[in-house]
Each structure stands twice: as structure tokens, then as C-alpha cells.
Design a protein around this nucleic acid. Structure first.
Lengths: 233, 233
DNA sequence: TCTTGTTTTCGTCATTGTGACGCTAAGGGT
DNA sequence: ACCCTTAGCGTCACAATGACGAAAACAAGA
């Protein structure tokens, strides 16, 4: 009752695609690599899974080590890449994760990273390894996910206005959304948001009502029915 | 430029959840294990990834070895399980795959399997390892997938009637679908099916028109817009 | 203070998609 | 010839949405 000798033993890494919305734009958390390979290049935070460690635990640990933040957000597995033709060191398997988080914490580089920060996805150059592919897959997943789940709210502060939530949808989808129809849809969907009674002023125009995610709703598995569909492209 | 010594080396397996519709019921392809652990128990086909092998190649190879069939269907990665607390031999990572296939080939056991065959998912006992969890996740994925993609057609023969396609939806969703509304939706969705002109008789009632998947459509990435939503439950 | 500009929020209206269901067409069996 | 079954077309009401008007509620400036 042991593993057959023909089985290959593979090093396993986790990579984290942390997405947020900053200044109305979709941003991803990137680090600059200290070590070879791809030293000096931008890359997704991530690293090797340690013995006796689960995948999500490894993802959170690497995120904390390299960026100094463990955002209160939604972490889910994205998909697994490899093991061939993606790392010059040889066959390595990478389990990519998607994290949707608010932008309220400031990343600080550590571990194998010399820089850590949010980068707008629209102005990115090349990334290390196959991280550009992983990032594209993650964005596509996020675009679909917020259609039928309330997860967009996890990219907002704990209390937010409908306009802030709309900014998330517009940034992730890259499309404009009509403010009036969006307001109707969000407030009319049971189990999405509940009013706090408070009003969040600050900016220009009429002060907006502050909402939070509805009670008893774990954005992890709640479902919007009917979904909030973006226009086909 | 080598893998750090703290990194754990992990054996990696692939498991395949092959789903089809047989006699109006959702079926999964299972094998009976020859070897320990879980010898004699039903399990998903799968096995260790060999050195210098990609994940989909390993999945197809194991499927061929253990069940004798490599169905012409849609293979996609489901998600990765482990590495802790799922195999008595120790930490093993398993990359589960989902295969949607027609039921036109007859499985024949081989390799580490003593039996291979389709089993209705509604009448299953315990499965080896965490395969029951994986199967549930796969069914949930399939349920969602056929809502917004034409992949249900990959569980039908090359030419099929609307009723056969509807049987797929009813079996996967576990819900009845109105035949008239379904016919309207399918034939009215551009890029789903095209008529072959032929008629498929055989059963009782008026002979139905035979369709095939629309030309130039790879069910892999085509999208139904608007989607075909099942009733919420 | 009054005006202008901005954003929020509530409504209106037309269109689309869908659920529910009636009805005819086209076969097989007795 | 009659009955039974399924295929395929059509109708109607309702729900959801896109497009857009307009009032409400603030800030800033004239």
C-alpha cells in the first residue's frame, strides 16, 4: 500500500490572483521577483506548498509573506496549470487561486519579493512564467462570477453605496452600466444588499444610501436569480 | 536556479468524472479497484501522472487503460483536491477532470480495474477516497455548464432529436422541462443546432427532425446568450 | 440667496424572453 | 377506422430589462 515507483513526484506551487477595483479600474496584486528565474520581473504572488500544508493555507501564507496583506475577501481555487512547459526549472504544478478583495490595505513587499502593489490590468507588460495566461483566466472567471453571485460586494468596503458597487461591475466587465437600471436590479434582488439607514456623503451630488451585504448571506455560495447579465460581446 | 529544498514533492493523480445520459438518467463511469487502498470499492477512473506527461494526456491515458474507451466528448479540468487527508497513503494531489460524453461505447475493464461501467448517480453507495465529493462537484459543474453553453449536445449522438437533447437537460438538472418551450428555445437560439433535413423515426409518435451541432461551433467555448436557465431550487 | 452642476432615486414605457398551455400534424398499434 | 403518442406551431399573460424622463438632495460658485 504505497505509491507506485512509476509515479512522478512533482513540486507544487500556489499562485494568487488578487483582484480589486481602484480608481474605477480593475487592479491585480503583483510582486517583483527577487530570485531567478524571472528575477526582476513582475509576477503573481505565490510559492511552493510546504509539506503538511493545504492549498488554501499555502495561498494565504504566500500572500502574507510576499505582500504583507491577507485581505478579507473571497478566496477560491481557479484552476491548475502545468506541469510541463511553464517553468524553466522543470515540471512544476501550479494551483492558481482567485481572491476578490477590497482595496483598503496597503501591500508591503517581503519574502522573495522586492515590490508589492496593485497594478491596473489594462497597462500591464509581460509577466513571469505563464502568469499572463493565469491572469486572463482569473479575470474571465471574475467577470462570470459576479453575474450570478453577490461576490462583487467583496470588492467593496463593508458599507458601500450602490454607485460603488456599480463601479465594481463596470471595472470588472469593462462596460458602462446604466445607474438607474442597476439601482433597480440590486435593490430589487432579495438577499443581496440591505440598507444601513446611514448616508455616505463626501463626493459631489446627492448623498447616497449606505448598504451592506444582506444578513445571513455568505457571498461564497449565494446565488442571484435571475442573474445580472452583462451585454454579450 | 533550482527548486528550494523546503518545497514538498507530491505525487499527483488525475481522476475523471465521465458523465452521460443513459435511459433518461444521469450516469457516471466507475471502476472497481483491484489494488489497495479501497480494493474492491467503486471509484472514479484515474491514476498517477507519469513524468513528462500533461494533465489532459494523463486523464485520457488512464481512461483508456481502465475503461477501454476514450469517448469523443468534452474534457475539461474540474478542480484540484488535496493534498491532505484524502488518501491513506499520504499527501497526494488529485486533479479532477470532467468529461461529458455520449453513451455509445461500452466500457471494458483493464489496468488496475476489475470492472468498468456506467452507474446511475441516483443509486450510488460509498465511493473510494473523496470521490463522492468530486462527483458532486462535477455534477454541479455540469448542471451550470449546460445553462450557458451548448455542451449538452456532446452527451448526444452526432445526430439527435430535440427530445433527446431535452432528455439530457432533464437528466442532468433532475427537473422536467416543457417540451414546447424547450423546442422553441433551442431552435430559436442561433448557433446551437442546425437541421439535417432527415427524420429520426423509431419510437412512438410523430417522427422528429434530426439535428446536429451548428457548423463552426466548438461547444468548448461557445456561449448561449441569453442562457437557458433552470428553475431555481 | 439664487443658480448651476452633479449624483441619487423613483417612474414610465416599449421590447424581449419565458412559463403555461391549446391545437394540429404525423406517425404506430389494434 | 379509431385511438394513443409525440412533434411542432401558435397564443396569451407576466416578468425582466433597456432606454430614458424627472424629481430629490446635496456642493460650489455667482
Amino acid at each position: 500500500m504505497t505509491v507506485p515507483p512509476t509515479a512522478g513526484l512533482v513540486p507544487v506551487t500556489v499562485d494568487i490572483v488578487a483582484l480589486t477595483v481602484l480608481n474605477g479600474e480593475l487592479n491585480v496584486l503583483l510582486v517583483r521577483r527577487l530570485l531567478e528565474p524571472f528575477a526582476g520581473d513582475l509576477a503573481l504572488p505565490g510559492g511552493f506548498v510546504l509539506p503538511n500544508e493545504t492549498l488554501p493555507a499555502a495561498a494565504l501564507r504566500e500572500l502574507d509573506e510576499e505582500t504583507g496583506i491577507v485581505p478579507p475577501g473571497h478566496l477560491e481555487q481557479l484552476r491548475t496549470y502545468g506541469p510541463l512547459d511553464r517553468d524553466p526549472r522543470g515540471p512544476i504544478l501550479s494551483v492558481a487561486h482567485l481572491l476578490l478583495a477590497p482595496a483598503d490595505r496597503i501591500p508591503q513587499a517581503g519574502g522573495d519579493a522586492t515590490e508589492a502593489g496593485w497594478h491596473p490590468v489594462s497597462t500591464l507588460g509581460a509577466l513571469a512564467f505563464d502568469h499572463a495566461t493565469i491572469l486572463n483566466d482569473a479575470i474571465e472567471r471574475a467577470r462570470n462570477k459576479i453575474e450570478y453571485s453577490p461576490l462583487a460586494a467583496t470588492m467593496c468596503p463593508a458599507e458601500f453605496t450602490i454607485a460603488e458597487l456599480r463601479a465594481v461591475y463596470e471595472a470588472v466587465w469593462g462596460q458602462n452600466v446604466d445607474p438607474r437600471n442597476f439601482h433597480r436590479k440590486i435593490t430589487g434582488t432579495p438577499g443581496f444588499v440591505t440598507s444601513t439607514g446611514k448616508r455616505g456623503g463626501g463626493g459631489t451630488g446627492r448623498p447616497a444610501e449606505l448598504f451592506r451585504v444582506a444578513d445571513g448571506i455568505s457571498p461564497h455560495d449565494a446565488v442571484l436569480y435571475p442573474p445580472l447579465l452583462r451585454r454579450s460581446m
